[in-house]
Every structure is written in structure tokens, then in C-alpha cells.
Design a protein around this nucleic acid. Sequence first.
DNA 1: TGTAGTTGTTATTCACTGATAACTAACGAC
DNA 2: GTCGTTAGTTATCAGTGAATAACAACTACA
Lengths: 184, 184
Amino acid sequence: MARTRLTAQDRHAQLVAAALQAFAEGGYAGTTTDQVARIAGVSQPYVIRLFGSKQELFLATLRYAGDRIEATWRAAAEQDPTLHGLGHAYKQLLAERELLIVLLHGYGAAAETTIGDAVRACYGNLYTVVRELTGASPDEMRDFFAMGMLITVLGAMRVLGPDAVPPQPWMTDLLGSMPHAGEK
Amino acid sequence: MARTRLTAQDRHAQLVAAALQAFAEGGYAGTTTDQVARIAGVSQPYVIRLFGSKQELFLATLRYAGDRIEATWRAAAEQDPTLHGLGHAYKQLLAERELLIVLLHGYGAAAETTIGDAVRACYGNLYTVVRELTGASPDEMRDFFAMGMLITVLGAMRVLGPDAVPPQPWMTDLLGSMPHAGEK
DNA sequence: TGTAGTTGTTATTCACTGATAACTAACGAC
DNA sequence: GTCGTTAGTTATCAGTGAATAACAACTACA
């Protein structure tokens, strides 16, 4: 059934993309390597062979998500190097909610020291990048990341984002106060 | 080995407390009913008998966490019915980080519809309660909950709270801008 | 063409986990 | 005291899931 042979590098990238999908939905512990393998169309043992272990696959996925967010912000900063500009870019990322949610799962799994280290490194890097790009003050930075977490969590809860649930009163209330929450 | 016989009600409560500990550390999928049982000092099948299923146990734990946070806020509002007062109370809750983190795991597991419903109901209730207690404006509410999520996530990542990791530069930067972050 | 390296597979294992069944022991009322 | 009820146990199962081993097929190149 193996239609196409890819280089290990390409397969690696494809599997990280598949893992992003799967882990975002099920979390670290709640996702099987077989699910990831099926999405990518390869066998489960091959996933393990390429990454060594499930944990390594998850770490690679976390790094990928962090890198993608960083890249998005760097691109946005070329147009508008302010927190407002980056904030707008972040909300666009809700269309690719998996990026944000997989990080959220990383925060939750931070009790595992290896994952905790990775996720703190990732967050620290993003913090540093945003500061470097915008030169914002500590207070502004704090508010920016606070709003980012709210958006992420609301996305995870399906209150915000593409496949959001039919809105309850409290949701419209909260969303009404979000900057540009309405589009799409 | 069964030292003490408890009423089903008491055992129920004790098991929810144990589940809070366990689920906060491992998340929903990453925690076994046996771990919960061991903490409470009972057998694993008995946990299932009392709650019907692992999922029911988790839902009960979510409800408990939500109720505890609500109670904390109601108590705080008697002294100082402002967002500032409730915010202070919330930061105190970091001492009992499990309450916040188990909810965070709930957000992550919201893809499971049953859990998603529960977690949205819980969040909506907390939103409504805070509004009722403080009469805050939508913008203030948004900022309040945004900051709450930041605190929760930083707690989960061990950047904030009792057993925080040795601080990196970016952490001191971010924490320095947090109101009353220093105490304890 | 043969052979070495790379990309993959199937078969299998072994530990674990949620759930069920069947049994046992403590408590309270009469 | 004995008998129904409630609180708990041990034994067990059926399914799952990560990881290993051994093998197969494609590619490239002398």
C-alpha cells in the first residue's frame, strides 16, 4: 500500500504535521502513535523508528509549533512591528488552531520534566522574540501574553475559532469585548 | 488492609480530592484510575464502582474545581468585591495549584464533547459569578480572565507557584510585571 | 548486474488499564 | 444474634499501545 517513497527528511516533516493534528485533538497521553501513523499513511512502528519514541515525536511537534508561531510573528512585524500587529497575526492563527492547542497540551504535560523544559524554552523564546520585535514594555508584554493565553484557551474550548460551538450568553459577552473577534 | 469504613458520600469526596491531585499531574488520559485509588487507599475497581467510569470521575473533579474557585471568589468578594480583590484571591489559589491545572487539562480535553460541555459550563458559570460579584465592564472582565489564564498556564509550567523552577531571565522579566507576584 | 544503503512493512511482545464479576466483612435494626 | 444493606475486596479479562525484530522492496552506483 506504500504509494510513495519519501526521503527520511520529508517523511519526518510530514509526520510532524500529522502529529500536530493528532496531539492537538487528543493531547500527549491521549494520542497513540498509531493515530499519527494513520494520518500520515505509514505504519506505526515506522513512526517510532524515525523518532525513537513517542515522547521525541511530541517534543518535535512542540518545537515545530513554536517555530511556526515565531515565523508568523516575524512576518507580521515586517508590516507592523507593534503588539497590535502581532496580536492580529496571533488571532489569524486560530484558523490553524492546532498550533496553539498543541502548545496548550504541552503546558499541561509540563509535569514531565523533559516536556516541561521544552515548553518553557519555547515560551521563553517567544517572549524574547516578541520583545525584540516590538520593544514593548514589561506591562504591555504581560497583557499581550495574557490575552494570548485567553485566546488559546477559548480556542481549545471551541468558544472561539473555526468550529466554535453555538454561543451562550456569556460567550457573546466575552467575545464582544475581544478586539476584532468577529471576523470570519 | 481496609482501615476505615467511610460512608459512600465521604469516600466520594475523598476520591474527588485524590483525583484532583492525580489528574492535575497527569491530565485526563495520562492518569489511571489505579493511581487515584492508591492515593485514596482503596482498590481500583471500587473507584469505578462509585463513579461508573473514569470519565465520570474526571467530570466530578472538574465540577469540584469549579465550585472551589467560585467559593473562593465569593468569600473574597465579601472583603473586596472588585476585580482586584478577586484577582488577589485567584493568585492565592496557586498554593493549591491543582484546582487551576485540572481545569486547564479540561480545556485541553474539550475535544471530547462530554468534557467540552462540562468545561464550558464551568467557565461560563465562573464568568457569570465574577460579573455578578463585581459588576465589572466587559473590557475589565476580558482582561481579568486573560490574566487568570496567564497565571494558570505559568503555574502549570512551573514558572509560578510553590514548586517553581529556577527562574530564567525572561521569567523574572515577565513576573516582575505581575501584580504582587513576589509574595511567598 | 550485483550489492550496499535507505525506506518501509508485517509479526510479535509485553506491560498496562478500565471495567466486570464474584465474593467478603462491617454496620444497624429488630 | 441474625439478617438485610452498605462498603469494600480479590481475581480476572479483553483490549490497547509502545516498542522491537526481522524481513522486504526500492534506488543508486560501480
